Amino acid sequence: MKPDIVDISIVLIIAGIVSYYIYLRYREEKKKKEEQLIPTLNYYKDKFSKEKVEYSEKAKRFQEKIQEYKNKLKEIKESIYRYKWSEDEKQLLRRLKGTDFEWTFTELLKILDFKVYEPPVYKDHNIDLLLKVNNNLICLDFVDYQQAKKINERYIDTLIEGKEKYNCQGIWIISNGLFDQRIKNYMINKGVQFFEYNQIIKFFPSIRIVEDFYETETKLNNYELLHKETADEVIRRDTWIKEVEEKLQEAYQKQKVEK
């Protein structure tokens, strides 16, 4: 059964009424939104401005902490002579081996302001580090107390080959053990400078300085990270405030034209 003209007319009238109602609601919501735009933008401008002040104050506190720990690192370096070896620290030195021994003395050398470089090839010719001393390059090898007993002439000759390869002016061996007299004589004849346990105690500050320096440096790095993150938040707020201000200017201009 085909719909007659009356049914079609009723449907069209209803559709028109619904469409008009939707249009009125749209106009009402749009007007409401436009009326709320400026207060909303001002709210966010105030919000971001307050947050910027808060983050700026945090960044300032973190910067103060950064300076504090930089000063502490400087104090540690300037107080090397105070780091005397206690009996407990001597015992700890005796027990260090492998990577712990290497890491501890690598950090100690850095604290003492030596320039430290790794060879291009790991432990090439028994060389652990290349050390710059008064513009001279030194081949450096760490030998813990267990390895010290196994050092022989061939081991030293390999180091000498590495010295020639890297054009070093000397060879240093640092060990928390003791070498036998025969191998010490061989090293002396070959011009190899060695520091045994006793020489370490005599010529180096206590390894406690490494612990103090590392702990302080870690705190410094943490505060530097916090400062960067906080400073980034300040930059974000600056950007957001600028965007809001641009939108506010547009809204005021539009409001002025409509009036």
Rank of each mutant, 00 (worst) to 15 (best):
V6E: 08
S9Q: 05
I17Y: 11
V18L: 13
S19T: 05
S19Q: 05
Y21F: 09
I22S: 05
I22V: 11
Y26M: 10
E28W: 12
E29L: 07
E35T: 03
L37R: 14
L37E: 09
P39D: 01
P39T: 13
T40V: 09
L41G: 02
L41D: 09
N42G: 01
Y44D: 13
Y44R: 04
D46K: 14
D46I: 12
K47P: 01
K52I: 00
Y55E: 02
S56E: 05
E57D: 13
K58T: 04
K58Y: 14
A59D: 05
K60P: 04
K60L: 06
E68L: 11
E68Y: 08
K70E: 07
K74I: 14
I80N: 07
R82N: 15
K84H: 14
W85D: 12
S86V: 01
L93C: 05
T99A: 13
D100T: 09
T106I: 09
T106A: 14
L112C: 12
F114I: 08
Y117L: 03
P120N: 13
P120W: 06
V121F: 02
V121S: 06
K123I: 07
L129D: 08
L130N: 09
I138L: 08
F142C: 12
V143A: 02
Q146S: 02
Q147S: 01
A148D: 01
E153N: 05
R154V: 05
D157E: 12
G162D: 12
K165L: 10
G170A: 13
I171S: 04
S175G: 03
S175K: 13
N185W: 01
M187Q: 08
N189K: 14
N189G: 07
G191A: 03
F194L: 07
F194A: 03
F195K: 09
Y197V: 11
Y197C: 00
K202T: 11
F203V: 00
R208W: 04
I209Y: 00
V210A: 10
E215M: 02
T216C: 13
N222F: 15
Y223H: 01
Y223M: 10
Y223I: 06
L226I: 07
D232Q: 14
V234L: 00
V234G: 02
W240R: 05
W240Q: 15
E243Y: 00
V244I: 15
E246S: 03
K247T: 03
L248T: 04
Q249A: 07
Q249S: 13
E250D: 15
